[in-house]
Every structure is written in structure tokens, then in C-alpha cells.
Amino acid sequence: MDASDEREFAEYFGARRDAVRRTAFLMCGDWHRADDHAQATFVALHRHWRRIRGRDDERVLDAWVRRTLMRTVVDETRRPWRRERSAPEVPEPAAREQDAGDAVATRAALVTALRAVPPRQRAVLVLRFFDDLDVAAAAAALGCSEGTVKSQTAHGLAALRAALGNGIDDLRPAS
């Protein structure tokens, strides 16, 4: 890459790094691994920068990054020596978190419960409801059909609801 490419990459990196890290964290539930996944994604992006940047479309670039990140995180869960086990029980929101405010407690409970959702379904939930992508964009990020995204969303919400278990009433907004 020449100096101009390096500068453009650095600008993109600066603008997107934290968002990519947060998405990775929501996927894997661990900031150290989230940093590994985000870094691996940006390394891959740097290696292919000229080809991808050449399309001159920020949305294409973002979609490529999301897709690479999702592949990276989901692929890791398939490795026999690093495969995740779904948590049989998810701890209810701790009193400390409740004290810190309902929003924080709700977020903490949801993030914890997400870890019990199977990886592909979790990826769909993160992309659609935390990153606010529509079905088509989520399908592009995950490399699957829109129908698969819809079915994985339904299964993922059911798994999340089951994971929240008895703690779900504490999260319900006051009417």
C-alpha cells in the first residue's frame, strides 16, 4: 500500500475500531477475545485494502468488515479446542447492577444471556438489534439467505428468552 492507502486505512480504523470491538464483545462476551477478533479483522482488511477500498463505497467496506468479523468469531466457536459450551443457567442480574440503574442492569443481563444463545443465532441478534441492521444487511454480513436470518432470529429470541428465565420479569419495562 502506498502512503495514501495507509492514511485512508488509518482513518477508517480510527472511525470504526470501537464499534467493531463492541460487536465482537457482544458476540463472544470477553473483551480480550473481542480485541483479538477485531484485530484479526482489521489485519485482514489491511491486507485486502486496495481491492476492497477500490470499490469506493463505504457501505461495501463496512459490510466486508462485519462479515469478516462474524466469520472470525463464529469460526472460532467451531474449533474443537475452543468451542463454547452454552451456559446451562444464566445468573440473574446482580443486585449491584440493579443499583446502578435499570438500563445498565438490563444491558448486563441481556449481554450475559446472549452468551447462552448458539453462536449463529447470537450473531443474528447482535447484528439486527444491537447494530440495527435490516434482514438483508444481516444476511450479507453472515453470508446466508434472508430466510435463514429470519428463522435464526426467531430461534435466537426463543433461546434468549429461555436464557433469561426467571430474571425476565425484572427486565420488563414498567408500564
Binding site: R22, L157, R172
Partner: peptide
Amino acid sequence: ELSDDELTGMLRAAGPVEAPPAAFGVDDVV
């Protein structure tokens, strides 16, 4: 039971996760 709409509403309203300082910078990536 929470409906799908209630659950997705809560997910959307949960807001951004507070992140610790990043463990890598652009130089590490390059």
C-alpha cells in the same frame, strides 16, 4: 412471557456497551 416485540425493543434500547481501552492500535494492525 415477554413477546418478541418487547424483547427486541429491550435489545435495541440496551444501548452501546461501555468498552475498556483498546488493546491494539493501527500500528499493531499494520
